[in-house]
């Protein structure tokens, strides 16, 4: 049996069939959404704020979960056992509260003030007439987003190479081509609808695989006995340091500042429906996360030694376990779920980056005194999506190390910069433009400083102190500067009439 375990992942006709079916589905969605997305820039970038509550829930949830959940969390649970649970708990709880409170304020405000990007919101909330705040935000968003997109393509290429015995370069080009086809044509509607399908692929794979892998091992008791025999701490969720636990829970702070997740909230048709999205999003998040944790635990029982995994890499656990236990067609679903995770994140990041270029840089900074026809803006947006994909590919090819260096900080950097400043912008009337700029800079710099100071890095994940620094800098500078004079009106736009929340 063990000879069969130390194997590589390889797809057969069933798996290829399931995977190709999935690809055809996402491309068909792109074509279906083309007409709607061609209407105007609001339709192209936020679906005209007409998205259904179910679509918004799933799209917001899977846009935030890249291959990190499928390959990273499963590998983490394999290595650490039950204590990996804290890595998923933080973001699920944070996102529940965001759907219920933060998102509703954001959606209401954005409708009243016609904001379709995150920099649009900041510029409007703080009367950013000279464009300084918008420029700082666009710079932060573009640097991190293009790196993110590039890294997603590289991950997709590697997954293609591992699953279908292809050259990684060909895999990267294929991943980029599929994403660009449905994003260019279908815009936000296509991205959201494909996210919804991708959410189904991911949840099916993450529920079916652990159930079958555990039952093939004679049930959960047998798996737990095996884990206890290997190492008692695998069954102890408290077997980690206090700093590590805080760091794991702190991953959730990143959800408050990643614009490709936040823009989902702006797109819903009725802000009151975000309550329903909160419920669906939380159930989905819990199912996917605990599915990933049980895959890691079952995987450890099946492969007690990491050397039994291809390249002795725990990130290969998910596809290898699937190949061992699932029917080839279901294995195809598992392979598709890896691409679903990668593409659902890459497409959302691509649209956010493109909206920053077209809406923020071109329409609001370079041509701010002109009225530009909507159709022309949509054409420019499509061109920018293609240019950004080429830039991400070129960037990844030219400087892969730099890309992965930037991605190390992307979740934390964006979370620490945008998270505290946006929360204060929504909830604290004394927040000022200068305070927000200070918070953006402090959050980003603290992330880098903490990461590169070994004594600090060992204590806790950099996002936690950087978030606190962003919050502190925004508050301190705001206390010494004057908030916009129309703050009361701005706050009124965030609240439901007669029901402040």
């Amino acid at each position: 049996m063990e000879e069969a375990l130390a194997t590589t992942v390889s797809a057969n006709t069933y798996a290829i069939g399931a995977f190709v079916g999935y690809l055809l589905l996402v491309i068909a969605v792109g074509v279906y959404a083309t007409r709607f997305s061609s209407t105007g820039i609001s339709e192209f970038f936020v679906g005209g704020r007409k998205m259904n509550r179910f679509v918004v829930a799933l799209s917001a949830v899977v846009s935030g979960r890249s291959a990190w959940l499928l390959l990273g969390v499963t590998g983490m649970a394999y290595k650490m056992g039950a204590s990996a649970v804290w890595a998923v708990t933080g973001y699920i709880v944070v996102e529940l509260f965001m759907f219920l409170y933060y998102a509703r304020r954001m959606r209401r405000y954005c409708e009243v003030h016609d904001c379709i990007t995150l920099p649009d919101f900041y510029a409007s909330r703080f009367n950013d007439r000279d464009g300084l705040l918008r420029t700082v935000l666009v710079a932060i968003i573009l640097i991190f987003m293009v790196s993110y997109i590039s890294a997603q393509f590289v991950s997709g290429g590697k997954a293609f190479a591992a699953s279908f015995d292809l050259d990684p370069g060909t895999g990267i080009l294929l991943t980029a081509s599929i994403v660009v086809i449905y994003t260019v044509f279908g815009g936000f509607l296509a991205v959201s609808l494909t996210d919804m399908f991708q959410a189904f692929f991911m949840v099916v794979a993450l529920i079916v695989l652990p159930v079958i892998a555990i039952s093939d091992k004679n049930g959960l008791n047998a798996v737990l006995l095996e884990l206890g025999r290997l190492d008692e701490t695998l069954l102890d969720p408290t077997a980690l340091s206090f700093g590590a636990a805080i760091g794991f829970l702190g991953i959730g702070l990143g959800s408050t500042g990643n614009p490709h997740v936040l823009v989902r909230y702006i797109s819903i048709d009725d802000p009151e429906q975000l309550r329903f999205s909160a419920l669906i999003g939380t159930v989905w998040n819990v199912l996917m996360a605990w599915g990933a944790l049980f895959i890691g635990l079952a995987g450890r029982a099946w492969f007690p030694d990491v050397a039994m995994l291809p390249n002795a890499d725990t990130e290969n656990l998910y596809p290898v376990l699937a190949q061992l236990h699932l029917h080839p067609a279901l294995f195809g679903v598992v392979v598709a779920s890896i691409f679903a995770a990668i593409m659902s994140t890459a497409d959302s990041q691509l649209l956010v980056a493109a909206s920053s270029v077209v809406r923020d840089v071109y329409e609001k900074i370079l041509r701010r005194d002109e009225v530009i026809p909507q159709k022309r803006l949509v054409i420019y947006s499509r061109m920018v999506v293609i240019i950004l994909v080429l830039a991400a590919l070129f960037f990844g090819w030219l400087a892969e190390e730099l890309v992965f260096w930037l991605v190390l900080f992307a979740w934390a950097g964006l979370g620490a910069a945008i998270g505290p400043t946006s929360i204060l912008a929504f909830y604290w009337k004394k927040t000022t433009r200068a305070g927000v700029i200070a918070g953006l800079v402090a959050g980003t710099l603290t992330t880098l400083f903490w990461y590169y100071t070994p004594a600090l890095k060992q204590t806790v994940y950099e996002l936690v102190p950087a978030f606190a620094a962003g919050l502190l800098a925004t508050v301190v500078v705001s206390l010494f500067t004057r908030p916009p004079e129309d703050t009361e009106q701005k706050f009124a736009a965030m609240e439901k009439p007669n029901s402040p929340d």
């Binding site: 969720p237 909160a278 996360a289």
Partner: peptide
């Protein structure tokens, strides 16, 4: 015991919290 609490009770508790908060918010906004 802590294993059961985190791997089974915790996810159920998060979902129950979501139901409670949504119900509470609905009641608040009438």
């Amino acid at each position: 015991m802590t294993f059961v609490l985190t791997m089974f009770v915790l996810p159920a508790a998060i979902i129950l919290l979501a139901f409670f908060l949504v119900y509470y918010e609905r009641g608040k906004s009438g």
